Amino acid sequence: MRIVLLGPPGSGKGTQAIRLAEHLAIPQLSTGDILRCAVAAETSIGKKVKTAMERGELVPDELVVAVVAERILQADAKTGFILDGFPRTVGQARALDDMLRTRGLDLDCVLELKVDEEVLLGRILNRAKEAVGNGQSARTDDTEEALKVRLKEYRRQTEPLIDYYCARGMLKSIDGLQPIASVATSLLEALDA
């Protein structure tokens, strides 16, 4: 199965992607992880990504798509994958569609975690509190101010993907405010439907 997992920051995408990946025996492909691996591997694309990151710039869409394309060709992704954090824009979604099509592939499903933005703040602040309580560092973006910026960017760049995939009949929305296990069950049921 080839799956895209959408949802605003703090919606539980990472948690659910890991659970789905384990259940379906396919890799969870986090864009941030893929970019960092490409940089560490010093691939030609990784070197270009590193230059952009060192300048503090957003990595251009064509480089992000190229890095994702390299990653999904690896052996562990042959039977499928879960994209977490990609695509972020309609432009990236179109590039992903084109790239998959050239390989005779297509996405099987796009899953959206729907959550109330008011609840997200509590989740984010709780995540930071739990990290500190466990002797770990809280994520630097787990603050009210950072969440507001991230949500604004999500609404501007990523939310249009909901209409894009809905128009293609691929979108399945799940209530992301349920308990973690219930969300996981709902995601699996949506995939089976």
Rank of each mutant, 00 (worst) to 15 (best):
R19D: 04
Q74F: 05
A40C: 10
T43Y: 02
S44H: 13
L171H: 10
R55L: 10
C37G: 05
T43H: 02
V68T: 08
P160V: 08
V68L: 07
P160F: 11
I124P: 03
L121I: 00
P160M: 12
L191P: 14
V49A: 12
A190P: 05
M1W: 03
A184D: 12
L83Y: 03
K50Q: 15
A69T: 06
M53E: 00
E42G: 06
A21D: 04
V64M: 09
S173Q: 07
T79S: 10
Y164A: 00
E22S: 12
L113G: 11
L125Q: 07
V65S: 07
L187W: 10
D61F: 15
A21F: 00
T43F: 02
D108L: 10
G10T: 00
I18H: 14
S11R: 00
D84N: 10
M99D: 12
T102V: 14
A17V: 02
R2L: 04
A17T: 01
L5G: 01
P160H: 11
L100R: 01
G14F: 06
V119S: 12
V149R: 14
G85T: 06
I3F: 06
D192L: 14
V65L: 05
R88H: 09
V149H: 14
Q178R: 15
R150E: 05
G14K: 02
Y165Q: 07
E62Y: 10
G14R: 00
A193N: 15
I3C: 06
L107D: 00
K48S: 12
A38D: 08
G122F: 05
G14S: 01
T31Q: 05
E22C: 10
K114D: 13
D84L: 02
K78E: 08
S186V: 05
K13C: 10
G122T: 08
T79W: 05
I45R: 03
V132M: 07
L20I: 02
S11P: 08
Y165E: 08
E144A: 15
A77T: 06
E57K: 09
E54T: 09
M53D: 01
D108F: 10
E42N: 11
C37F: 12
P60G: 13
E144Y: 15
I34A: 13
A146H: 13
E118D: 11
R101P: 04
E189W: 14
